Amino acid sequence: MADGEDIQPLICDNGTGMVKMTKLAIIPFTIVLETIFLNKKFSQTIKASLMVLLLGVGIASVTDLQLNLLRSIMAMLTIAATCVGQILTNQIQRRLKVSSTQLLYQSSPYQSAVLLVTGPFVDKLLTKRDVFAFSYTTQVVAFILLSCSIAVCVNFSTFLVIGTTSPVTYQVLGHVKTCLVLSFGYIILKDPFSARNVVGILIAIFGMGLYSYYSVVESRKKTEAASSLPVAAQVILN
């Protein structure tokens, strides 16, 4: 649920272009949904900085884009599920005034039950393999448990970041991760790196800087406006 990564393998065969395009589309869709259903306003500066960020990440990471009907359907479902899930995560924490730990504790059993029922069926439908027919060794089970533990940590951090900031900010952090993965892949693993990757990462970093700056400025303005309300109210009353 965190940033669509749980469902992304379903739309990725040999290339990852469609997966990366799906991740790029989450921010615009989130803005559209919050604007329509929550009447949330995004300034032109915030939108412009996000466009610069998405342009940079797209240049740096999207290379082998391949479209077909199944991938397109799974991509749209991924985008919708991720956007709605993250928006609800933010709204529930703010409206009910619960912590990320409390929300994760209450929602995890339901998420696990849905995945337990639908997961094997969907997996067999898409991969033509039955998870129950697999031979589970001690090593495999150990890695499954390790993967589950990491997933719990990811979900906890997701709920914490989204509840404290916003779904859009969380997606921006996700693109920071993409840039770091590309950079460390080149530095540590000596992955192929072109001028296009460098330019894309630099543009993305510039967009992130703009988004961070304008977010802080707007947050400060809102705080100052909120603190000045009681004074204005007193003046009106007098």
Rank of each mutant, 00 (worst) to 15 (best):
E34F: 01
G56Q: 06
S147W: 01
G174E: 06
I203R: 04
E5S: 15
T118H: 00
Y211S: 08
L69D: 02
I7D: 02
V141W: 10
E218V: 02
S219E: 11
S72C: 07
N197G: 05
N238L: 12
L146K: 01
T35W: 12
C179D: 09
F184C: 11
R196E: 08
K97C: 05
V117I: 15
A233E: 13
F184A: 14
K20H: 13
Y110D: 01
L189G: 00
A25P: 01
I188V: 15
V114A: 15
V84L: 13
T63G: 00
V141D: 01
A233W: 03
L145C: 14
V217P: 00
Q139K: 05
I7G: 04
L146W: 08
L67M: 13
R95M: 04
L70H: 07
Q102M: 11
T16M: 08
K23A: 14
D191R: 10
L145E: 02
I205T: 12
I236V: 11
I201L: 09
L88F: 13
K41N: 08
V32I: 15
L10E: 05
S166T: 11
S219K: 11
R196Q: 14
V131G: 04
G209T: 08
V216Y: 13
V84A: 09
P109I: 06
K222C: 03
P28I: 11
L146I: 09
S183C: 08
P120F: 05
Q93L: 07
C12A: 14
V140M: 12
S135A: 12
V131R: 08
V114Q: 03
R196N: 05
L145F: 14
V198D: 04
F42N: 06
R196I: 10
K23Y: 13
V84M: 10
I46L: 13
S183R: 01
T82S: 08
Q139E: 12
A133K: 10
I27F: 03
G163T: 07
L126I: 13
L180S: 09
L103I: 02
P120I: 07
Y136T: 10
I36Q: 06
R220Q: 13
N14I: 09
V19R: 11
D123C: 11
S219W: 03
M208I: 15
T164D: 06
K47E: 04
L180A: 12
F134G: 00
T158M: 09
A195N: 12
V235F: 12
L24P: 03
D191V: 03
S227D: 07
V217E: 09
N155A: 09
Y214S: 07
A151M: 12
L210F: 08
M208R: 04
R71D: 04
